[in-house]
Design a protein around this nucleic acid. Structure first.
Lengths: 220, 220
DNA sequence: ATCAGATTCTGAGCGGCGATCAGATAGGAG
DNA sequence: CTCCTATCTGATCGCCGCTCAGAATCTGAT
């Protein structure tokens, strides 16, 4: 393959990669829902049928964008994880990085959660997602042992991070860089609150009662 | 208006309502993304252009469905709110009802959050949403006073409820009625944990990291 | 009862999109 | 150089959102 991508030639050179990049551009301008394969082709100067040599359909192209999105996120997350040793802090760092990613790479975040990609038909996406879910699970298990309590905590943390990301993109924190930081910090604080909650890490409690469970896994 | 909606006649009778109902059916079968005005028309036996006498465009029809969805949710939420007096319990009840609604009225929930309706161009939706946000704000202000802490708590509660709803619809809690109840109960518990957290309701607690606007590397 | 005006619906049509297919073109292996 | 394979073109199909002129029907005022 002659890497290049020079336009005007019969063979584009690296149409696959160019399509992914252009897709991100278009999604940034008009949203996932407004993205069309035809327009991406036009922008690249190729026939509207050309993309189908590289992707089975529109969804497969979006899935490739989603995989790239996870790679970017993981690349940003990893250095943050090495900065903290305590599982609770690491969990908070994940939440913060997650919200930051949503705020600073909006089109990528949009593709991951707004494109309606069927992860069963596109296992690549699930694979790309794995490092993130693994990181969460690691921390949670260190904190909660490994049974129902850990499931509950990981669900709560995921929900908190994702929810704050949505609120941020909805404009609830304002706009601009400081909105992103505010939302990210809130998500981190909420995560720590969840980890520190005496309600979640004990066994299931029924009423709000202040029954402090005896067994509390609290390493570090 | 000759109420009726008998098919075969030139005038349908109540096409507007019929379109909303049929839209919900279709969305239930193929998802919001798969819904088309044309197919709804076909199913109702009218011309594909008929809907445009009642709705400016596809999005306006979906907005009407969203308004109906909020009405249903509010109708289910209200009796739950009267069952509890303590703000914390009410907040948990809201979260529980929210997740239950997502699980038992999936197409309606899909429309609200997956149809990409522009709430600025469709204020009816925001109006229909108001009773819910008001209920949350009521409880939160009773708990947190009214400043930053209350904003933080309400964001956390919304995030928790919405996040658990998404996890439920993603299959993370399994399937069927018991999955819905499990997810709803988890959301309620997490909400109580948030309310009970000494981290959230007090004044801001120690920053996780030293205030340092570090230069974060940006991978391609 | 009648009739003017406003609603609601039809039928035709436009442009855009996703997707398929046969065939042209280029790069690489032998 | 020659053949093979991957890549790209051009044409085409069906579906969709949406518009428009005009027909059918309903409404309310007289």
């Amino acid at each position: 393959m002659t890497a290049g991508g020079r336009r005007g030639r019969y063979h584009h050179g690296d149409l696959r990669t160019a399509l992914i990049d252009t897709a991100i551009e278009l999604i940034d301008e008009r949203g996932v829902r407004g993205f069309s394969v035809a327009e991406a082709s036009r922008r690249l100067g190729v026939a509207v049928s050309a993309p189908y040599a590289h992707f089975a359909d529109r969804e497969e192209l979006l899935a490739a964008v989603a995989v790239h999105a996870y790679e970017v996120f993981v690349a940003e997350l990893r250095p943050q994880l090495t900065r903290f040793r305590a599982p609770a802090r690491r969990l908070a760092a994940i939440a913060r990085a997650y919200v930051r990613f949503a705020g600073t790479h909006r089109p990528l975040f949009d593709v991951i959660f707004g494109a309606g990609i069927d992860k069963v038909r596109h296992p690549e996406v699930k694979d790309a997602e794995r490092p993130v879910t693994d990181a969460v699970l690691d921390c949670v298990q260190a904190l909660a042992g490994g049974d129902a309590a850990s499931e509950e905590l990981s669900g709560a943390v995921e929900a908190a991070a994702h929810g704050h990301a949505l609120l941020l993109l909805d404009g609830d924190f304002g706009h601009g860089e400081q909105a992103v930081e505010l939302a990210a910090e809130r998500a981190a604080r909420v995560t720590l609150a969840l980890v520190g909650s005496r309600h979640l890490l004990g066994r299931p409690f029924e009423p709000v009662r202040r029954a402090e469970p005896a067994t509390r896994g609290r390493p570090t």
